[in-house]
Amino acid sequence: MNKNRILLRSAITFLLIWLVILISYEVTHVYGAAKKVELDLPKFGTRIHAGIDHLELKTIKFKKVIKLDGWAYINKHNAESQSTYIVLYSQNNQYIFDSQKVIRNDLPAALNNDNDRVENAGLTSLIDMTRVKPGSYQIGFYIMNNDSNEFTLSNMSINKSKVGIEFKENVNTKHNIKIQKANSKVQANLEEVSQNNGEIRFKGWIFIEGKSLEGAKVYIVLKNRDKEIIFDTEPQFRKDVTKYFGGVQDYDKSGFISNISKVDLGKGKYQIGVYIVNGDARGMYWSEESIGEE
Rank of each mutant, 00 (worst) to 15 (best):
L123P: 00
L39R: 12
N75C: 11
D69S: 11
Q249L: 04
K267A: 13
Y244N: 05
K253A: 05
K223W: 03
E191L: 07
P42I: 06
S136Q: 15
N146E: 14
Q100Y: 09
F141N: 01
V87W: 02
A11G: 11
L16T: 14
V186T: 12
D114Q: 12
Q91H: 13
T130D: 12
F245Q: 01
N75F: 13
N146T: 14
L153V: 09
N115G: 06
E56I: 04
I86Y: 03
V263A: 06
K101P: 07
F44M: 11
Q180G: 07
I74S: 00
S81I: 11
I48C: 04
T84Q: 10
N92Q: 09
F237S: 01
S161R: 13
K262P: 01
G266Q: 06
V186C: 10
F202G: 01
N112R: 13
S261N: 10
G279D: 10
R225K: 15
Q94G: 06
T84H: 10
I96N: 04
N176T: 09
N278V: 05
W71L: 08
I12E: 06
N176R: 12
V65A: 07
I291L: 07
I220D: 00
G283Q: 03
H49C: 09
F167A: 04
N115A: 12
L68V: 12
I74A: 05
K203D: 08
R238M: 02
L41Y: 10
E119G: 03
I200P: 00
K269T: 10
